[in-house]
Design a protein around this nucleic acid. Structure first.
Lengths: 177, 177
DNA sequence: CAGCAAAGAGAGTGACTACTCACTTCATCA
DNA sequence: TGATGAAGTGAGTAGTCACTCTCTTTGCTG
């Protein structure tokens, strides 16, 4: 297996593990073990643990942009936004994505991570703006509800049957914005 | 100083440190040092580091509830919601609060932390519901924009002058919901 | 076949960290 | 006065973890 292929499979594992434990709460050893390589070799593929984390952050946002582009297809305007919203709901089924996103936000005290996270978020924002073309208030409403769904999914509210939890998790009314 | 007083001052430091580093990224030694006690004594005040973290999570949400109650005062309905929203914007000036909140969400993989975070969020939700009495869609819109402001503050977007960052940070239009 | 570069691992190392044990100081009160 | 109990600490301990040094294997090429 070439180094680049290894790097890709290590990254796939790293995203999952970092999503669960964050930068400080994840050891390079478990990433290496799950990726099927030795821990020293991990450090030849990625110079530092933080580098691997930064790559995971960038990858997470980049994947979402590509997903949104596919979801929008030839649509534009509110229909495009609705299609993107639906694809986001699908994305949240696997909690890895949103947890990784939250880890990125929560680690923004570190300047390097903050820069990477800002860039990822900005590109995502611009992608939705470009794909849908809706005005900025609608865009903000879209992202706001996305963030609420993130934390709701993080707390696993969809699995609760209590009244308040169901209210939090209802999809945003598409007519409002 | 009594043990209870010590516990309170340790908690104050712990909230700040956990907000920056999260559970795994914060050492009990720096908390003890900043609180002016020895590290062994910290473990007499709080049995484990995780216990201290859980207390910090609960405290963060509880403080917000009290703050919202004060902000709402005798108001109700949309005016109450607006007052609460303003007090939340004030609260976000100090990044400690929102970072601690994000750390709580990001640590929800742990069952104990998830339970504490759910409870805190639920009580906050119910408080705003009770204080304002607005319908659930408006409530959801309020929390959604709150979450967006959280992550925007985490990334320190308000300090950026770029167009997209300013758009993200605009306050939610109060008429929409 | 010789040589070379890349893939990969074994065995550390020094620093850190959650938590413990045994100890001291000191105010209170029978 | 002497005992009690609460506040508080010095000095560990066992374990973890990011990262390194050095070595082996393997596939390719001249």
């Amino acid at each position: 297996m070439t180094a680049d292929e290894r790097r890709a499979s290590v990254l796939a594992v790293a995203v999952q593990e970092f999503a669960r434990g964050g930068l400080a709460g994840t050891s390079t050893e478990v990433i290496a073990k799950r990726a099927g390589i030795s821990q020293p070799y991990l450090f030849r593929l990625y110079p530092t643990k933080k580098d691997l984390f930064l790559t995971a952050v960038r990858d997470t946002f980049a994947r979402t942009v590509r997903r949104f582009e596919q979801a929008a297809g030839e649509l534009s305007g509110q229909p495009a936004l609705t299609a993107i919203g639906l694809s986001y709901q699908e994305l949240l089924r696997d909690r890895t994505y949103l947890l990784m996103q939250l880890q990125a936000y929560a680690s923004c005290t570190d300047p390097d991570i903050r820069t990477a996270t800002r860039t990822g978020f900005r590109d995502l924002w611009r992608a939705v703006e470009r794909l849908s073309g809706v005005p900025s208030e609608a865009l903000r409403g879209f992202f706001a509800h996305g963030m609420l769904m993130n934390v709701a999914a993080a707390m696993d509210l969809p699995s609760l049957s209590e009244e308040w939890a169901r209210l939090v998790c209802l999809a945003a009314p598409s007519a409002e914005d």
